[in-house]
């Protein structure tokens, strides 16, 4: 399933880039994140708890950041599995200055399997957009408060 969107953030591109690459910011802003452990350069071990439709599940897996072109672009690959099935996703984030702020474009392709596919796939688009929205809202707040 493909998802994409844009967000405008009220901070210069460099600040946005730094925040996006700050494990602490990721930890605080990723909805349902239980654990994020750096296990190598740009590679993290993550545990997430997410509810999709009637299925709440904990997924553990890895998150990799690749193709880094500071401060404009990176790709992100995510893979996780748990009792409720598995999810696999790949996406890209592109930044460009827009006035005093930054325009962020994101896109991703997510595949789910097992229980979450059978029960939740219909809801996945909506839930995905909602979670990503929460992520950027949190990010915005952090940028706004200057942390």
């Amino acid at each position: 399933m493909k998802l994409d969107g844009t967000n405008t953030l009220a901070a210069p591109i460099e600040t946005v880039w730094t925040t996006l690459n700050d494990p602490e910011a990721l930890r605080r802003c990723t909805p349902g994140l239980q654990e994020l452990k750096e296990v190598g350069p740009d590679t993290y071990q993550a545990t997430l708890t997410i509810g999709i439709a009637a299925v709440k599940g904990t997924y553990s897996g890895t998150l990799r950041i690749t193709d880094k072109q500071p401060p404009r672009h990176y790709r992100i690959a995510l893979e996780g599995s748990g009792g409720a099935g598995f999810m696999k996703g790949e996406g890209s984030v592109d930044l460009e200055p827009q006035g005093n702020g930054t325009l962020l474009r994101w896109s991703g392709d997510v595949q789910v399997g097992g229980l979450i596919a059978g029960v939740g796939q219909r809801m996945l688009g909506g839930v995905g957009k909602m979670l990503i929205g929460q992520f950027f809202k949190c990010l915005e707040q952090r940028l706004g408060s200057g942390t």
């Binding site: 595949q111 596919a117 029960v119």
Partner: peptide
């Protein structure tokens, strides 16, 4: 089923 043969209608909701 989706294109990876994941069943999508496994409850009586769907």
């Amino acid at each position: 089923y989706d294109e990876q043969a994941q069943p999508l209608s496994t409850t009586f909701m769907d």
